[in-house]
Design a binder for these strands. Structure first.
Lengths: 97, 97
DNA sequence: AATACATATCGATAATTATCTATGCGAGGT
DNA sequence: ACCTCGCATAGATAATTATCGATATGTATT
């Protein structure tokens, strides 16, 4: 339960532009250039967000020739889901002790 | 699918101190003073984080006399989970439309 | 009503993050 | 070998967020 690591995973989801990217990648793997068209930011800014998404483990990058293809990582989603499930495993409240 | 709203939900999870709070609240409702002991930040800083957690919908606050009691919101967790599930509903990849 | 206590809010500052322009790098194509 | 294209990196700046000390607010308690 490294708090830093957990926070890192969810950095993927806490920015509006990154959510926009994820919503697009939901339909399947996309080239960076496609994301750039959709996003109204400059190319370096997109690159910055894609790095954060990859570092979080939620997105996978694949290089093919000149192009970068990004897709959502099922494993990454599982990690995120695991933490949410972890929070659900309540014992009885133990307020006073 | 308001990107701003989705990002807001996950703001709860993208900070180390807030994850620490959630990990504690996992065991059940806790008073703010308990969180303060555990967290190594000043009282105003804790209050700031608790506001973000409540605004995200992941945490519920309840005032009882002088004390504030915080707990994890099942509904909030569901909202977060819904988005993760949403990303999982893949159609076939459609790279080159 | 005076005091003590728990928490929220205010205002300032430090730290982090997002964004841009400019530039570098690798992969094809000519 | 050179050029072009797609993307990453560097460096600077703007915007946001985290944090603190000081103070306000509301709630017992005496």
């Amino acid at each position: 339960m490294d708090e830093r690591k957990t926070a890192l995973i969810f950095k993927a989801f806490c920015d509006e532009n990154r959510i926009r990217v994820l919503n697009i990648l939901k339909d399947g793997e996309k080239c960076a250039c496609r994301l750039l068209e959709a996003l109204n930011v400059t190319q370096p800014t997109l690159s910055h967000h894609m790095k954060i998404l990859c570092d979080s483990g939620i997105v996978l990058g694949r290089k093919e020739g000149k192009w970068m293809y990004y897709s959502i990582s099922e494993d990454g989603l599982s990690k995120a889901q695991e933490y949410i499930d972890f929070l659900r495993l309540k014992k009885e409240a133990n307020n006073d002790e």
